[in-house]
Write a protein that binds this DNA or RNA. Structure first.
Length: 454
RNA sequence: GUGGUUGUAGCUCAGUUGGUUAGAGCGUCGGUUUGUGGUACCGAAAGUCGUGGGUUCGAGCCCCAUCUUCCACCCCA
């Protein structure tokens, strides 16, 4: 049998793990710099916790876990014979792999509300699973790195999250990312102004395609979805949004002046943008993007999305937003939350494409002791114990293999030094230390050996 | 979930209109070289041609199914 792994999953080599750890540590360190503290939640949740939180599409993409035991025998006979997958699923599966980190976090907050001091700033770096069809940068198992604040409605949080994005991407050397920002209230306002509140989703989905298929086709799609010609006329400015953030905000403000909610959205967006502009960004660019409509299922205020620098073909590498009532689903009202997510796996691909990994090294010993035989090995192991006590990474080649093989091993792992010990060295209580880069070698006693490797 | 695409040695890939025993480079292992590596030269191992059916005297090549890869929708990190 040929071994294989499931579609959309991957093995990671030592180099890949080193690179991933580097990204993760950069993100975690930034989270902590901004005052977030880590939590973890289980890989799988009760299915009822997750189902219905991500829309119909989301439900389809949740990995369900089969109940233990003879689950079919316990299922309703009628549902079984009717072959109704949807109904049957809820009977034979009570658990599901987590789909994102936000909903389990909301569950966590509600469940631990009495232990938590609000505002609660948490970060979480864990894998999530989606039964999606894989593509480049799209996997069925991938890591999200989330930071959220719950228990504060302050827009300063939005400002800080933009700074956090900027900090992480700057540190990773990923310059000129674009952070797109929108506000759900603006989208609602637009729908209100055109008299199509019920068509909000159709409208935004069509609008989202503007830069892909062009104005004419977007209008055709909107008409097809039952949005009136008059309504489309009212939002014409949306189709030619290429001015500065300031100009775009002004255009939105006048378009939405009759909508209370829309006007509020513009004000919020203006505050965030003005504050960020005042405080300055290192390398990212902040852009108002009214076509941005992610996570419409629970976002209520700001919506974020980060795309890679121009020229890199990759979907969004981060996203987030404000959700005013996510904990409400689990019974805790009036707790506003806002957060962002970093897509580790996509960031990896982008950094790789741009060649930004070269400084990351695999873990390796500083010195390799060549194995000449039993007696020599023992002599070496005593020295190694001393080196390790000083936290000098060292190892003995496990077998008394040919010199060439042992030296090759050192070369392959890019080990800087080797120590050669034969009968002569043992006799003189010495070690021959060889620098594998320069080829120089010295005869040293144990203290000199420690000193030159420390 | 819809439509398309890909699969040949550990890796990257050749392989003619269907025709005997499927090749190369890199890597691996061994040797030249039993206490001195990277270089060089010589040699070896390694493939049920993704898998299962079918067509054919004959299939890596044609047909069907399935898995995988990537792409476009959809959605998203």
């Amino acid at each position: 049998m040929k071994p294989s792994i499931p579609k959309g999953t991957r093995d990671f080599s030592p180099t890949e793990v080193a690179n991933r750890t580097y990204i993760m540590n950069t993100i975690k360190k930034a989270f902590e710099t901004f005052g977030f503290q880590p939590i973890e939640t289980p890989s799988f949740e009760n299915a009822s916790t997750l189902m219905g939180k991500y829309g119909e599409e989301g439900d389809r993409l949740i990995f369900k876990i089969l109940n233990s035991g003879d689950y079919l025998a316990k299922a309703d006979e009628n549902v079984l014979t009717a072959k109704n997958s949807l109904k049957l699923t809820s009977q034979i599966s009570e658990k599901a792999l987590k789909y994102d980190l936000t909903v389990p976090f909301a569950r966590y907050v509600v469940q631990h509300q009495n232990e938590i001091t609000f505002p609660f700033k948490r970060y979480q770096v864990q894998p999530v699973w989606r039964a999606d069809r894989p593509q480049k940068g799209r996997f069925r198992e991938f890591y999200q790195c989330d930071a959220d604040v719950v228990g504060s409605k302050s827009l300063w949080q939005e400002v800080e999250f933009i700074q956090l994005y900027d900090k992480v991407f700057s540190q990773l050397g990923l310059l000129k990312t674009s952070i797109k920002i929108n506000n759900r209230k603006i989208l609602s306002g637009i729908a209100e102004v055109i008299g199509a509140q019920d068509k909000l989703i159709d409208f935004t989905v069509a609008l989202d395609k503007l830069d892909k298929i062009g104005k004419e086709k977007v209008e055709i799609e909107m008409l097809a979805k039952g949005i009136s010609e008059e309504a489309i006329k009212k939002v014409q400015p949306l189709f030619s949004f290429d001015g500065s953030n300031e100009e775009n905000l002004d255009a939105l403000a006048s378009m939405l002046q009759s909508s209370e909610e829309g006007t509020k959205g513009v004000e919020e967006l203006r505050f965030v943008i003005n504050s960020v502009t005042e405080l300055g960004l290192k390398s990212a660019r902040l852009e108002v993007d009214v076509t941005l409509a992610r996570g419409l299922n629970y976002y209520t205020g700001a919506i974020f999305e980060v795309s890679a620098p121009k020229g890199v073909k990759m979907g969004s590498i981060g996203g987030g937003g404000r959700y005013d009532d996510l904990t409400g689903i689990f019974g805790l009202k009036d707790v506003s939350g806002v957060g962002i997510s970093f897509g580790l796996d996509r960031i990896y691909l982008v950094l790789e494409e741009l060649g930004l990994f070269k400084s990351v090294d695999n873990p390796k010993p500083k010195v390799l002791f060549i194995n000449f035989g039993k007696e020599e090995a023992l002599y070496c192991m005593k020295a190694i114990a001393h080196l390790r006590a000083k936290d000098i990474k060292s190892e003995l080649f496990p077998d008394a293999a040919k010199m060439k093989k042992q030296m090759n091993y050192a070369n392959k792992r890019k080990i800087e030094f080797v120590v050669l010990v034969g009968s002569q060295e043992i006799e003189n209580n010495q070690f021959t230390l060889k620098n594998m880069i320069s080829g120089e070698q010295y005869s040293l006693n144990i203290n000199e050996l420690i000193a030159s490797l420390n």
